[in-house]
């Protein structure tokens, strides 16, 4: 970090003094919340939802206009005291399960959720049988 410091000092020392004199406390969050808990919920929720326009991005990442609108909706709904489940229901009833990066466990996704663990169990069972006493 030494090099950075030298550069910084040389180029910006005056500006620096000016800047440091100003206290920086005002909330500058793009999506301001009243509690850190709400903030965390917002980050978790948007990162687990898929953007429908740029389909390889999540809602937190996407720069698409729709993603922006949906982020604002989620922000407002969290501020209005909606639970995560209510927000997810709101989105799923409009866009379907596609919007969830974590599919819900139901009859059609049982293979998705149980499959890997079943395979591991079968493997271990084979190994136990194969090994001799």
């Amino acid at each position: 970090m030494k090099i950075f410091w030298d550069d910084a000092f040389r180029v910006c020392s005056i500006a620096l003094l000016l800047v440091l004199a100003i206290p920086a406390f005002a909330s500058k969050d793009l999506y301001p919340f009243s509690t850190p808990d709400q903030q965390n919920r917002f980050y978790t929720l948007t990162s687990e939802l898929r953007c429908l326009v740029c389909q390889n991005e999540n809602l937190a990442e996407s720069n698409a206009a729709l993603a922006n609108d949906l982020r604002e909706q989620i922000h407002t709904q969290i501020l209005n005291g909606k639970t995560d489940n209510e927000i997810i229901h709101y989105l799923v009833s409009r866009y379907g399960h596609f919007i969830l990066y974590r599919p819900p466990l139901d009859a059609s996704t049982i293979g998705l959720w149980a499959g890997p663990f079943l395979i591991l169990l079968i493997g271990i069972f084979y190994l136990v049988k194969r090994a001799q006493k």
Partner: peptide, 12 residues
């Protein structure tokens, strides 16, 4: 506002 489109599940 695009709100109606969201209610209709429009994504493009």
């Amino acid at each position: 506002s695009g709100q109606t489109a969201i209610n209709w599940g429009v994504y493009g």
